[in-house]
Computed example of a mutant assay.
Amino acid sequence: MITLPPELLSQLGIGLWHLFAVFLRVSALVSLLPAFGESSVPARVKLGCAGAFTLVVAPAIHPPDVAPSVLSMARLVGTEILVGMALGMGLRLFVLALQTAGSIAAQSTSLSQLLGGAAVDPVPAMGYLLTLAGLALSVLLGLHIRAAQFLIHSYTLFPMGLAPAAPDLSQWGVLQISRSFGLAFALATPFVIASLIYNLALGVINRAMPQLMVAFVGAPAITFAGLFLLFAGAPLILSVWADALFSFIFNPIGM
């Protein structure tokens, strides 16, 4: 029987304790990370991604200074999961912004019922298209690398084992939610403007020719305009969204 020296056992215990402490924050963030934390991704794949991110992040993080006792472990588990979920929710709100922008665009251009019941979540086809394209673009731009850097830098903002103050965390959360809805409306602005022009023109035509069924004439026009705006504006919409996402990754607490 092979026996390990006590010094080696001590080092192994410290290393495993370090990996476990890092894994807590990483797994909470990966479960909400865009592209990696989607509901369509199996739980085993998410667990594997969390383990891979842990192996990348752990060497850059100083081991926790707390002793591995029951009380310190409970405090560490709660703190690290809270920080990981808060940062993950900040990233997840950008996916929600794309979905909201697609819903606003679809409602404005009368395309909200296209493929309405074919999907898992009740999101219009425009929202699914923009979300899928945004996730693919973020991965192509190196989201996994930026996410690893984001996790490493998060320990500078939120040291291991120290919970953020509740007023600061709530104020930061409200700011991120307001920013998400502001970004969603900004991305859907061309569709809202087109809808406003369409409805004004429809009202003028209806007043000029009351006997004309303007709804039957205008419905194909607004549908074509919505599809054309989606085709022409999707690259700009996705580039603005990607810039906002990576700006948050570089500075998650900035205004």
Rank of each mutant, 00 (worst) to 15 (best):
L82G: 06
F224A: 15
L143C: 06
M209V: 14
P167D: 08
M160E: 02
L175V: 04
A60D: 10
V45Y: 03
W241G: 02
V204L: 14
V139L: 14
A165Y: 04
I152R: 12
L132R: 13
S27D: 08
I2W: 12
L98T: 01
S170Q: 13
L151R: 06
S39P: 00
I193V: 15
S110M: 11
Y128E: 03
W172C: 06
L24T: 03
Y155T: 07
V45I: 15
L200V: 14
F224K: 08
L87D: 05
V139F: 11
R207H: 05
T156E: 15
G48L: 15
T189S: 13
D121M: 09
W241I: 06
Q171W: 01
A125M: 14
C49I: 11
A242P: 09
L229M: 08
G78A: 14
H62N: 11
S154V: 06
G182E: 04
F248D: 03
R25Y: 05
A133G: 10
A221E: 07
A74N: 06
G90W: 03
A60F: 15
F228Q: 13
A194R: 06
L12F: 08
S138R: 04
S40C: 02
G226H: 00
L129T: 14
A184Q: 03
H144I: 02
F185V: 12
L200P: 02
F23P: 00
S170G: 09
G90D: 02
